[in-house]
């Protein structure tokens, strides 16, 4: 007898495919935010599952902060090419040059600056919907996020005024200038993502695996040594065997000491891990409400 039973990954997968297809059905000009990070790698596979044998009915969009790990950009470009997908890149550098984004005195991080860059790209291509790889388990403010997250004409998220989401019926209706962010991986955890990468045999950028790197101790974390914020003489620098759990900019992504060389190693490590993955991102650590503030301003 056949068992008509789906395991947890198959459940998460069919839910995400359903959401991808709702986007294709309800929006005129959707885009898929693809960074080359592990979550968006899963998104791409889900898009293939949703739309093959057709071409993906949406371009890929990436906001390049100029502070990306080079390994990540190399992977991003290669993967887009493999899929035959159109990849649109808009850079913070260019946004600054055009006056779209303005650097505050002494501001080095590009976290805030990627917001106006993204909003300008949305306007330029008149995207009405951006699919993103955010998960609710990443952070407390995200825990309240909807699958279809409505953004007003200023790109803002209003946590008190969200559309109720009932059953699998998503309300994608928009007025001109308004926008939707859609998060098919909402219900996935870090563990689910890695198990899916394993099951689907997906390639991921090399920095997720163990490697040697010069790291500097800063804000209770090991950050990669880089030219943007070079180590001060007072700071401790060490040559470590590390990997990254979540990829942000090179100046804010914490490295964890790890010998994990394969996806199975990573899964075993997470199963035993005692620190959540956002614990290794300096940009969220500053304040518990940090993420919430950025989201209200239009961060994805």
């Amino acid at each position: 007898m056949t068992s008509y039973h789906l395991d947890h990954l198959q459940h998460l997968e069919t839910e995400a495919i359903h959401i991808m297809r709702e986007v294709a059905g309800e929006f005129e000009r959707p885009a898929l935010l693809f960074s080359g990070g592990k979550d968006s790698i899963c998104l791409l596979r889900l898009a293939e599952k949703a739309f093959r044998p057709s071409d993906l009915p949406m371009p890929l969009l990436n906001v390049d902060t100029g502070h990306h790990f080079p390994e990540l950009n190399e992977f991003r470009d290669r993967r887009a090419k493999q899929l035959g997908a159109r990849l649109i890149i808009r850079t913070v550098e260019e946004a600054i040059a055009k006056g779209i984004a303005t650097v505050a005195a002494g501001e080095i991080s590009r976290n805030r600056l990627q917001i106006p860059t993204l909003l300008a790209a949305i306007e330029e291509f008149r995207f009405d919907c951006c699919i993103g790889g955010a998960r609710r388990d990443e952070e407390k403010a995200r825990a309240k996020e909807r699958f279809f997250s409505f953004r007003d004409a200023f790109g803002q998220w209003d946590p008190k005024n969200q559309r109720p989401e009932i059953w699998n019926l998503y309300n994608g209706r928009l007025n001109p200038g308004e926008n939707m962010r859609v998060f098919p991986l909402s219900n996935w955890t870090e563990m689910d993502v890695w198990e899916y990468i394993q099951r689907e045999k997906l390639e991921v950028p090399s920095i997720y695996f163990t490697h040697r790197r010069q790291c500097v101790r800063r804000g209770g974390q090991w950050l990669p040594v880089n030219n943007l914020v070079p180590p001060k003489p007072s700071e401790e620098v060490r040559d470590l065997v590390v990997r990254v759990r979540t990829i942000g900019d090179i100046i804010s992504t914490g490295c964890v000491e790890s010998p994990a060389a394969t996806v199975s190693d990573i899964i075993a490590e997470i199963a035993a891990a005692r620190v959540t993955e956002r614990g290794s991102r300096a940009d969220d650590k500053s304040s518990e409400a940090a993420m919430e503030d950025r989201k209200k301003a239009g961060y994805f």
Binding site: H8, R136, D137, K140, A143, K144, P159, K160, Q162, S186, N187, T189, M191
Partner: peptide, 15 residues
């Protein structure tokens, strides 16, 4: 608490 928040956990038997 003003809205719906989602939480995730797993045991060896279920998610």
């Amino acid at each position: 608490t003003i809205d719906v928040a989602y939480r995730y956990f797993a045991t060896p038997r279920r998610k």
